[in-house]
Every structure is written in C-alpha cells, then in structure tokens.
Design a protein around this nucleic acid. Sequence first.
RNA 1: GGACGGGUGGGUGAGUGGCUAAAACCAGCAGACUGUAAAUCUGCCGCUCCUUGCGGGCUACGAAGGUUCGAAUCCUUCCCCGUCCA
Length: 325
Amino acid sequence: MNQKNPQPFLVAIVGPTASGKSALGVWVAERFSGEVVACDSTQLYRGFDVGTAKPRVEERRGIAHHLIDVLDPNDGATAGGYRDVALAVLEDLRQRERLPVLTVGTGLYLRALIEGLAEIPQRSEELRVRLRASAEEQPPGHLHNILRRLDPEAAAKIASADEQKLIRAIEVCLLARKPISEVHRAGRKPLEGWRVLRIGLMPPREELYERIHARTASMLGHGWMKEVQDLLKSGLSENAKPFDFIGYREVRAVLRNELSLDQAREAIQQATRRYAKRQVTWFRKEAGVKWFLGLGDDPELQAGVLDFLQTQGLEAGRGARKRGV
RNA sequence: GGACGGGUGGGUGAGUGGCUAAAACCAGCAGACUGUAAAUCUGCCGCUCCUUGCGGGCUACGAAGGUUCGAAUCCUUCCCCGUCCA
C-alpha cells in the first residue's frame, strides 16, 4: 500500500440485537458498492433462519451477503474459525473492489478479525472432558486451583465459578506448555491493509426493548415453530449447537407442550434483552466507534451515517473503487 | 351475615420477637470476557449524610393503636383481597 494506492475501506456496524444493523448494512452497501459480511456467530449456521434473525431475501435487496449459512448445524463455530473465513471473504472483496460492510452482533468475532488472536492452541475436546469430569469429583474451586498453579496471573482474572473460561485457560496452558498470560503477551496479529470505519447503533434502551419484544412475537408468528419442527424432523440431533441459541429451547418446549406460547414468548424476550445488554457492554468499550443513538432503519440516522462516511473519505457510488484513482 | 386464608421492597414470594433494610427468584443498573461468545461469569440494587466505615441518620412489611428493653413477626380495632358457608 502506498500513497497512490491507499488502503481500501471496511465498514463495521456494531450494535445490539434488533438495533437495525442488517437494514443499515444493506443501505450502506447500496450506496457504496458494498457487500454485507455478517459477523454473527449464529447466522453462520444453515437452517436456523427465523430465530437468528437472518435478513430475508427481500430484505437483502439484491446485495450479496457473506458468512451466512456457511456451517452445518453439527459443526462448532469459533472465533478463530470465523477469522479465517472472514479473511478469505475480505480478500475476495478487495480483488473485486467492493466495500465490505460488516454487520456485527458478535463482538468477539469482530475483535478476532480486526485485532487478531494470539498464537494459541485450539480447543481439545478430550482434555475438556477430563477437566470437566475432575471438576465434578473435586470440591468447588478445583479448576481455579489448577489454574492458579499453572498461571496465577490468569487465575486472578477469572472467577472461580466461571468453569468455561477456567477450562479454556487451563487447556491453553497445558497444550502450549506455558502460561496463557504469557501466550497472550506474545501479541496478536491484527488485520492489515484496510481502513476500518466503525459505526455503532445505540438506540434508547426502552425503544430497543420494544423492538426486541415485537420482533420476538413476530418470529413466533412467522415460521419459527415450523422451522424447529422441520429441523428436528430432518433428523438433526437435539444437541446440535444452534439449538442452544436464544429461543430455540423455548420453541422446542412449546412443541412438546411443556410451555405455553405466551410463556415462551416472555422467556425469549427476557433472554434477548439480557443478550442485548451484554452486547452493549461489550461494544461500549470498543475503540474508535462513531455512535448513532437510534435504530438502523431510521432514515434520519441513515442520512447521518452517509454524511459521516463521506467525511471519512468514502465516495458514494464508488466504494472500494476509490483506491488507485 | 358467618367460617377460614391472606395483605411484605418495582413484581413473584420467603420470613412468624432480636443474627432483618428484610432469603430467593424476576425485573432494573453496571461490569468482565483472546478459539462454546445468542456462551460463560461478576458486582450493585429503600432514601440519605460524611471523615467511605463490616460508619451515621431516616423511612419501610395494608392502617391505627397496644404489649415488649426490642415487632414484619404477639394483641386489639379498622380497611382491603381470595375461598367457602348462608
């Protein structure tokens, strides 16, 4: 990259679920010769459409969408795996001079992509099984004790009740044969070759919650139940990872008559609200985000986004093509 | 009209003389998180004051009185709600 050939832009839209990221993503892509790249751990899976709020064909308005429906429900998504496929997509868009517009629901995945991950061992199921088993036999705090021995620094940062994180930390220490804190200190490999513009959607809490409630009701009324029914009928294991996503458990309970539709709806709305709050917490500390305090489908907000992108140097109608001018 | 049961903090709901500003859960708020992340985990949560201390003051368990060193907890009356009997 030199002055005559500046780095292409990449737009990342972050925000809580139901804040209108998909709508804004398509809108931006339409104006800057872009393509949408989903950054969402759930939309990766094929077959789980309604409950994960994948943009429907008519909502995509002819804009290409990437990293949706790329995993089999029996596969397991990981931050590192996402990074790998996303890098390939970005390279493709660079070649074709299209503006990547990331719609980001999963903050960890965005960070993995932009800031990179440490050179770190992948998960080992065998090791995890063993650790989990020993944790059950031993008194509480056992895993924490193990980690404290392997890496006191990491142990100090993880609550002793947080089994999931403790297991990962221990796993890394054992496989890497050195403390995970040391592995982390060795650094990440950040994304290079792109000018990243971050746009954040932060609707007033009340408005967001209303959206969540309405969307949940609408999903339940528009095929979510049938989707789950069909997935189960297709022979997919009930243990497939995507069935753990918000709402799928409740929908299955309704199908088994263990829960009324009303109860399910309320439970799903509640879980979604909590999820949105966690996303907000994560995104709030994301650096370099230009925040917009509303919903992504609001024309006034969209005009503000357009204005912002243009002042950053993006040219309407040309997008990534700007380079090489 | 009579017989029971019940009225607790934003909600559900424990608590039946001091360890109770009151369990637990929900809601709410805030936060952590480098390979399960729609996951996992943590803190706060009546009001208020400051010298921020396992500190002080005030208010609080339907209402009003009373018993007691001390009451959400016991007594009296009243007001509500539910169920049953008339």
